[in-house]
Amino acid sequence: MASTVRAYRRVIGSRLRAQATYRLSFTVELCAQVIAGGLELVTILAVFHNTTSLGGFGRNDVLLMYGLATFGFGLADLAVSQLNHLGELIRTGKFDVLLVRPLGTLGQVLTLDVQLRRLGRAAIGFATLLFALSVADISWSMAKLALLVVAPLAGAVIFSSVWVAACSICFWLVDGREFANSVTYGSSMFNSYPINIFSAWLRRLMAFVVPGAFVAYYPALVLLERTDPLGLPGWLGWTSPLVAVAATAVAGGVWRFAVRHYRGTGS
């Protein structure tokens, strides 16, 4: 176990060092990430230029949700976005190389590269979160403070799990990346807004099957002491760590099943 951790630590360290050699490229890509996040923010501001409330929530409430979702998603993006290349790994046979090493496949795929530039998006999320907290009218307690620390981390784990489970489709469908993206990037966008504005079945899919509602919406309701317009109980906001654990278990199971399928068919 300790040696496995050490192996991964060394691999990640080397990936980070390798990036230092492409400083210009890193800077430009970081800018692209910051701009991407910034424009999402601009979208929210433009929306509130035309209305004062979205599903019963004001601008600052939505910014809080956006901050929580985007910070969590940005961290997940940093951790697992290597999965975007899974189809390519399978097509070129590089995945087989990973199978003849004494480490698990998922860990190896995730550490093929670690792209720090993806911090750009997390940074936008974090900054928005700080701003939203500074303007929101929140009566703080120790429990809420704890929730504030835990929720983005749980969010990162939830989104990472979603990513792992969704990208597993590439073991059946090498070009499955875009299907997976509609779930991963889709749930990021979906959960940046109050989920009650969307149609019911879309909400079931993007907020509960993909448990994105536990990343931003429900924790935000707790922080703001608002009741859920959808009528679900308020304590749901405290459950995001549990949901994260469950999501990890499901994602791990899906991944194992997918790799077993791959090794059983070699396709």
């Binding site: 046979g93 590089k94 087989d96 190389v97 090493r101 004494p102």
Partner: peptide, 14 residues
């Protein structure tokens, strides 16, 4: 995984 530690594999194209 255990086997991987005992054998060496070279793929000419990967």
């Amino acid at each position: 995984r255990e086997l991987a530690g005992r054998i060496g594999v070279v793929f000419g194209q990967r």
